[in-house]
Every structure is written in structure tokens, then in C-alpha cells.
Design a binder for these strands. Structure first.
Length: 279
DNA sequence: AACGCGCCCTGTCCGC
DNA sequence: TGCGGACAGGGCGCGT
């Protein structure tokens, strides 16, 4: 569920509230959200008495750096939430999978209805190594048209599918992939390698724009997403095609259509995103 | 070896 | 009201 803007919002909310706090204890009601290499006991022993030094983001992952030196990476899957316990909405959580008890009686709660999320601990070196498997950061200086074009050239997958591959660009999920393709006027089924440099530059700009705007709006809440205080994001009304099948295209007013690519919905305007190759 | 598919799990909604 | 099926923002493992 959470993509880059949602992970970014959560990271900034948590940063303001838990940096400097120490973890005094850990409870793991649902072990299956821990990476398979962690038992609940070993996980608890590694985390307790650690101090949260920094909260950041890489792709869709919320990254907590701890002292003594250790990195806790949270991938929220579809329904994962990280909420501080003293937020008014914390009481509504019904599927708490991990509780990080903090000094002073507060807690950082990891809630996850579907339990598709994963929490994994790394050393700084291990995390650096693992990050080499993640692709470009869309909001970094390295994310320019040339870098994106070099990568799209190597794949014949439909561009919508390609954008979901975290090894290529990190942080894009189904919502923002579809929104960026609409803005760049590229049909979602176009093979990645069929895009010319001009299309790829438009796509790059569209991705940066939509992600920045969504961060500004604190993310998109369709159903489950909540920020670090348990509150929904505000970007949903600004979506132009995602979830708007049969609705009017905001550009030409024709009907938005849905198509299924690799078992996941793609939303597009058949008029504005016409450049489809025959299938 | 790039790519697509099924699956992990729970909840909601829609048609009958 | 109940029930079955489709669907949901992600990502892994598998087979081809």
C-alpha cells in the first residue's frame, strides 16, 4: 500500500516524535512480520535498550537507525502502519503486530491487517549491501532522463510493470505508476524499451511532479494508509486516473478505462495515452 | 535470465 | 441475510 510519498510522510512524522527515545522493551504478537531470519526473542534482544538516532526512507522502506549502530528497516506491505501510541487514532488499531515500548511509557506501534509487511534488522554494512539491490531514488539528483532511459532500454516489460520493479526505480507503486504514465501521456502497456528519450524525459518529470505533490499532500489514502499519527493522507482527490474507471478523463473528458497487466489494474485514458503497440 | 504468475492474509464490496 | 467471487497501495519464489 504505502509507496514513496506515504513512507516519506510516516518517516517525517516519526522523526519528530521518536528520535532520541530509547526502546525499553519489544512485544511481537505476530512473528510473521519479522524477516524469516529473526526469531521474536532474538529480535527483542537486539532492539531493547537501543536509542532511535534517526528516521529516514529508502524507496518504500521506513529506515530507523539505532544506537548502538544498527538499522531497522520496515517495509509496510499493503496495510502496514507505524503509529506512535499517544496519537488519538492509536486506539483504533486492531492488528498490532509489534509494539516497541519506549522510555516514558509511550510506544511505537506496528499494525498490519494483512501482515504482508516485513521488519528486518541489519548492520550498517549489511544495509549498504542490501541497498545496492534497490534502484534509483526518484527525488534524488541522480534521477534524470538519461539514467531512466538507460534502464528502460534494457526491458521489454510493459512500462507500468517495469515501474513497479524496485530494482529499477525505488518507491513507485501502482498508484503513482499509473498517475505518472497519465501525466506523461504514455500507454501503460507500452514495452519499456519502446519509449524514446523524449517520452522517458516526460515520464521522469511526471514521476517527480506527482511524487512531490503527493508528499506535499501527505500521501494517498484509499482505505488503509495512515500517517505516523494515525491520520489519512489528502492526495486521493488529486488522483487523475487511479481508481477512476468509467469516470471522465480530466484532460479530454472521455472515459477512463481499466486494464489488467500481470494481475494488477492499470488505469488510463485511451485517447490521451494512445501510443499502444499491438498486443 | 527476464518475465509473468500464484500466493501470502484479511477485509470490503457487489451481485445473486 | 447469506454466500461466493473479485479486488486491494507489495513482494517473494517459482517455472519457463
Amino acid at each position: 500500500m504505502p509507496e514513496l510519498p506515504e513512507a516519506e510522510t510516516i518517516a517525517s512524522d516519526l522523526r519528530a516524535q521518536v528520535v532520541g527515545s530509547s526502546v525499553v522493551d519489544v512485544r511481537v504478537p505476530f512473528v510473521d512480520v519479522l524477516a524469516p531470519s529473526h526469531t521474536a526473542t532474538a529480535f527483542r534482544e537486539r532492539i531493547r535498550r537501543c536509542r532511535i538516532r534517526e528516521v529516514g526512507r529508502r524507496g518504500k522502506n521506513v529506515v530507523l537507525r539505532l544506537d548502538p549502530d544498527q538499522v531497522m528497516v520496515v517495509n509496510l506491505g499493503m496495510t502496514g502502519r507505524l503509529v506512535v501510541s499517544d496519537s488519538p487514532a492509536a486506539g483504533q488499531l486492531r492488528h498490532i503486530a509489534v509494539r516497541f515500548e519506549l522510555e516514558g511509557g509511550r510506544a511505537l506501534l506496528y499494525d498490519d491487517v494483512r501482515r504482508f509487511g516485513r521488519i528486518e534488522l541489519f548492520s550498517t554494512e549489511q544495509w549498504a549491501e542490501r541497498q545496492t539491490e534497490l534502484g534509483l531514488e526518484p527525488l534524488s539528483d541522480a534521477f534524470d532522463g538519461a539514467a531512466l532511459y538507460a534502464r528502460t532500454q534494457r526491458s521489454r516489460s510493459p512500462i507500468r510493470n517495469w515501474l513497479l520493479d524496485q530494482r529499477q526505480v525505488a518507491g513507485i507503486g501502482n498508484i503513482y505508476a499509473n498517475e505518472a504514465l497519465f501525466r506523461a501521456r504514455i500507454h501503460p502497456a507500452r514495452p519499456a524499451s519502446s519509449l524514446g528519450i523524449r517520452s522517458v524525459r516526460r515520464l521522469r518529470d511526471a514521476l517527480v511532479d506527482v511524487l512531490r505533490e503527493a508528499v506535499e499532500s501527505r500521501g494517498t489514502t484509499l482505505n488503509d494508509y495512515r500517517d505516523g499519527n494515525g491520520e489519512p493522507g489528502n492526495f486521493e482527490p488529486r488522483l487523475r486516473v487511479y481508481g477512476r474507471e468509467s469516470g471522465p478523463c480530466p484532460r479530454c473528458a472521455r472515459q477512463i478505462r481499466r486494464l489488467v497487466l500481470s494481475n494488477r489494474s492499470a488505469f488510463f485514458c485511451p485517447h490521451c495515452q494512445r501510443n499502444r503497440v499491438r498486443t
